[in-house]
Write a protein that binds this DNA or RNA. Structure first.
Lengths: 213, 213
DNA sequence: ACAAAAAATGAATGTTCGTCAAGTTTGAGA
DNA sequence: TCTCAAACTTGACGAACATTCATTTTTTGT
């Protein structure tokens, strides 16, 4: 029996492997989003994906491995959606502003995301509470002393900064009023060097809805 | 029998409560630092603290609760140590630079910290890989188009930024060479508005050792 | 058609968290 | 000093779970 007898050239096996892989990620994504990573059980995921309990381990080394796959996919999809919407924007600053805003909104408003990011909340909280007050004071002093001014910084770092801060903010706050998100976006935009007034303007501009699929 | 007969006015009970509380945090801290939060078992912690397995739950609602207490204490202690060293600095910019550097160094170099911050690694990684490339590109475009310039930003946000980015960097990289940490500190300092040359200078200055206790 | 290789299966294993009934300590009043 | 109720401690226990593995099923090459 040759490959061409059993199906397409690619082979049934490869196709089934892909189907199972997909089904597992989909199942894990659904369940983990509903109950959080810890509360989701491997058996439940396996059942929903319609495979035996042991089969999961042919596809993912461990529960953590599976959770990573889910997180990566979720973030990748969000990035693509943002990409799609901003494709039509003419102002590149607006593209960026929309991206930040959308990441924050999604992490704040979508309960499924909250569940998945849950654990980082603990760490972000501890950081804010324990290190924050000291660092703020030091920064203020250095600025008052005229030692810190403003200068443009490396793009990569600004990016990392914005993304992480935004999500940390989103995950750390239970009920984030719209006005706070607005102000946050403005402040993050200010860090890019744009003036505050323009940042306010950018943040206020109407935002198209994300594509749902 | 009055309170004064049984010990100090405060009472034996309160004292034992404090002793146990301390012993539990100490034990949890030791064990969680060695094996990570997940691998540390409540029984092991109880044994090391010299209390019954059930007693832990009279002091902490859950394992997570205990882990939070440990994290907060650890970070608070680090903040205090930094405070102590920088007290003698004359240049406030140097105070800040030292703080950043020390947080990064500690999170990178100290295996105990790595263990405790472990889970955020997953999220930070996913963020960097999935959102990073898009955000970088958007930022570049906005900058090339002349839409983003440089301006001073809110102190609080810069603080949050620095702390989180530094730790994310530290936790996300397995073997971080000194030169990379140097460069990182310089970049972070640049974001405060100080010029690059001075940032390099600040980062290179000799750093006193932290107090060990 | 057959046997060897690969994958799937789900019952069994070994741990773990958190609970709880039973026992112990505490300290105010008699 | 003795008594008693409230508060605390204890360790055995139950339920739940991630992961393993011997067995069965499917696939592949000849």
């Amino acid at each position: 029996m040759t490959a061409s007898d059993t199906g397409k050239t690619e082979g049934r096996v490869a196709r089934r492997r892909r189907r199972n892989h997909r089904a597992l990620i989909d199942a894990a994504r659904w369940i983990m989003s509903q109950k959080g990573i810890d509360a989701a059980t491997m058996l439940e995921i396996a059942e929903r994906a319609d495979v035996g309990a042991g089969t999961v381990y042919n596809y993912f080394k461990s529960k953590e491995d599976l959770a990573i796959a889910v997180l990566e996919e979720l973030m990748h999809e969000l990035a693509l959606k943002i990409e799609k919407v901003t494709d039509t924007f003419s102002d590149p600053a607006q593209v960026y502003a929309f991206g930040i805003r959308t990441v924050i909104d999604t992490a704040t408003g979508d309960l499924r995301w909250r569940q998945l990011l849950y654990r980082s909340e603990v760490i972000a909280n501890a950081m804010f509470h324990q290190m924050g007050p000291f660092a703020i004071r030091d920064l203020e002093r250095a600025t008052l002393a005229g030692r810190f001014k403003v200068d443009d910084a490396t793009l990569t770092w600004k990016m990392a900064t914005h993304a992480i801060v935004g999500v940390a903010l989103a995950v750390t706050n239970d009920e984030l009023p719209d006005s706070v998100v607005d102000e946050t976006v403005v402040r993050l935009l200010c860090m890019t060097g744009i003036g505050r007034e323009e940042a306010v303007d950018l943040a206020r501009r109407e935002r198209p809805a994300l594509p749902s699929a």
